[in-house]
């Protein structure tokens, strides 16, 4: 049975912890808002980009020599997996769920007889995967996702790492795994193929657009534009994934810290109860001692 002093100490320490977790929750919620805003602002570019790509891609897809960034290298041996996680922990199952998903993916790809290479974005992903998949990790990009503002230039850097590898012919296809932001309390583990490019299916609106499309003038030719558009598109896709990931991270952290705060509150209640009970017992014991002492005289 812990002594009164021990109990008092524990109550104090849990109170301190609660202060920290509730502060972290507030910080996470404000960061979440910012991350959401950023994701919102980045949307128009990505949307226009994919619309443009869909038009161009349809025109060039049947070419015998489609650029590798569009159609892959034609072989299907080496797959590059970009694992996007957070730099920091304390956000519930956020990082571990991505790591688990990545591991499963690697196994599935290996079962298909493919070779896998990994680029880790975010420190936690590297830490989690290093133990069992350490020899697959080719590169690590850190201190990008924990920046105050996620910059496009950073996504571009990652994209260049990918394009360089394609040009060198060391990889045949590429995808990214991240958490897609659904709402503050839920996000969804997502695998997104980056190369070959997943051209959006022709929806009704797109078909309508396509009719107007036939009239488009291209300056210079489609192929030249496509050559430039593809690397940019890759960077934008990565940028978007990172933004979504950042928003999910903050959402997950908020939820984790919220439940931690609540748990701390409950614990304090229980500890206070047993503290009071013990204090009462001690008082009663002392009284009995006094009374029985007086009787004995």
């Amino acid at each position: 049975m812990p002594s009164l002093k021990d109990l008092r100490n524990r109550i104090n320490s849990v109170k301190q912890t609660r202060k920290i977790t509730s502060a972290m929750k507030l910080v996470a919620s404000s960061k979440l808002k910012r991350a959401q805003e950023q994701a919102e602002q980045a949307r128009p570019f990505a949307e226009r980009m994919s619309a443009m790509l869909a038009n161009l891609g349809a025109a060039v897809r049947d070419m015998p020599e489609a650029p590798p960034l569009l159609a892959g290298t034609g072989k299907d041996e080496v797959h590059l997996l970009i694992v996007a996680t957070a730099d920091k922990g304390l956000c519930g199952g956020f990082n571990s769920s991505i790591a688990r998903g990545a591991r499963r993916r690697v196994q599935a790809l290996r079962a298909d007889g493919k070779q896998v290479k990994i680029i880790c974005v975010g420190r936690k992903g590297r830490d989690l995967l290093r133990r069992d998949l350490g020899d697959l990790i080719e590169a690590y990009v850190g201190d990008v996702v924990s920046k105050k503002k996620l910059e496009y230039a950073d996504a571009e850097k990652i994209a260049t790492m990918v394009t360089d590898r394609f040009e060198a012919g060391t990889i045949d296809s590429c995808s990214i795994v991240y958490n897609r932001f659904k709402s503050v309390i839920s996000s969804e583990l997502t695998f997104k193929p980056l190369v070959p490019v997943d051209l959006p299916e022709a929806t009704e609106a797109a078909v309508e657009d396509n009719e107007a499309k036939a009239l488009y003038t291209f300056e210079p030719e489609e192929e030249v534009i496509l050559q430039r558009l593809l690397p940019t598109n890759l960077a934008v896709q990565i940028y978007r994934a990172l933004l979504e990931n950042a928003a999910s991270e903050q959402g997950a952290r908020m939820a984790a810290m919220d439940s931690a705060t609540r748990n701390a509150g409950e614990m304090i209640k229980k500890l206070t109860l047993s503290y009071n009970r013990q204090r009462q017992a001690a008082i009663t014991k002392e009284l009995i001692e006094i009374v029985s002492g007086a009787e004995a005289v």
């Binding site: 443009m52 038009n55 161009l56 107007a212 499309k213 009239l215 488009y216 003038t217 291209f218 300056e219 210079p220 030249v224 534009i225 430039r228």
Partner: peptide
């Protein structure tokens, strides 16, 4: 500034994609 020379775009320009 188009890749192949400057472009002036007015209302109702014909559809165009340019670098």
């Amino acid at each position: 500034p188009g890749e192949e020379g400057d472009l002036g775009i007015l209302v109702e320009h014909s559809p165009l994609v340019a670098l």
